[in-house]
Each structure stands twice: as structure tokens, then as C-alpha cells.
Amino acid sequence: MQPDSLSFIFLNAFLINNFVLSMFLGLCPFLGVSGKISTAWNMGLAVIFVMFVSSTCAYGINALLVRFNLEFLRLICYIAVIASAVQLVEMAIKKISPALFRTLGIFLPLITTNCAILGLALFQTFRDYSFVQCLAFSAGAGGGFTLALLLMAGLREKLDLADVPDVSMGAALSLMLAGLLSLAFMGFAGLGG
């Protein structure tokens, strides 16, 4: 596979360098809303949507800023775009499904401070991706995030029934699980060549 081919970019973000499990981006929602599979799935969809919107906008903004030599404003512009995109999603979900709005709770506005989204915008800028490559990259990253969230939710639903030592309940247990998942994902490292 060519390193800049669309399929490679997608696979790279989806499995090999999974945003959550090997780049540590977006851990807060990963630990926070991975209690149930259905919530995790919806959260994943919301994140994918915000990623597409913000990646597209970030591409446009970066072209504009480079054109006028204003690269130092990049960070501020990106975060403003992401905040607006999240607001949009929030209003849409509130309108379409108030029940879902309540389950996601505080984690919905917190997508703004999800490093995965800003990370996506920054990485695509550093790597000089073209517009189509940006779309493939955000599809891979969003898909990877959702995959990690779903795997984690599935494991945690099973673990609810298990008898674990008292002291490791809660966050510590989730982190161990994440570590094991991350070990498994290291196996994909050879895929890219």
C-alpha cells in the first residue's frame, strides 16, 4: 500500500494508530460513556459527525490562514470551529431524540474538549493532507474511536457480572481493560509495513 493512498490513511487511523488505544486521544469520553453498548454507539456516531464537520472546516480555514500568513491563529480558529460544530450536534440531538440527549448528558458538550477532534484537525494539518485524504482520515479516526468505545462497552457490560477485588473497582479496572485492548491493538502495528 502507498503511504498516502486513501485506504492506507483510513486503515492507519482506524486500526494501526487507533486514536484512543495507541495515541491516547479522547480518553475522557472513552472512560466516561463506555458503560453501555447503546450509549457508546450513539456517542461514537456523534463524534464521527463532529469529526467530519470540523475536519472539513479546518481544511478550509487552514488554506485561508496560510494564504494570509496567519498560521499563529490556527489553534484559536480550530477550537472555535469545533465548539460551533458541537453546538450544532447538541441542538440536533436535543430536537431529534431528547432521551439520547439525557443519556449522553455532560459528555455531549464535552466533545468540544475531546482531544480526538482537535488532534484530528492538527494532524491533518501537520501531514499536509489533501481534501479527500482529510475525509478518509476523519472517517478512519471516527470509526476507530467508535470501535474502541464499543469494544470497551462490551467488555464492561460483561464485567458488571464478575467478582473483582474491591480496591480495583471503577477507574482502575477500566484502565486495565484499556491497557489489554491496547496490547491487542499493537498487533496491528505490522499491518502498515
Binding site: F24, A172, L173, L175, A178, G179, L180, S182, M186
Partner: peptide, 14 residues
């Protein structure tokens, strides 16, 4: 490597 980060933090928490 990445898994180590998760494990070490989990051990500290425990």
C-alpha cells in the same frame, strides 16, 4: 509503549 501508560496509571490508582 501505549499499553504501559494504561497499566501504570491503573496500578497507581489501585
Amino acid at each position: 509503549l501505549p499499553p504501559g501508560g494504561f497499566f501504570v496509571l491503573a496500578f497507581w490508582l489501585v
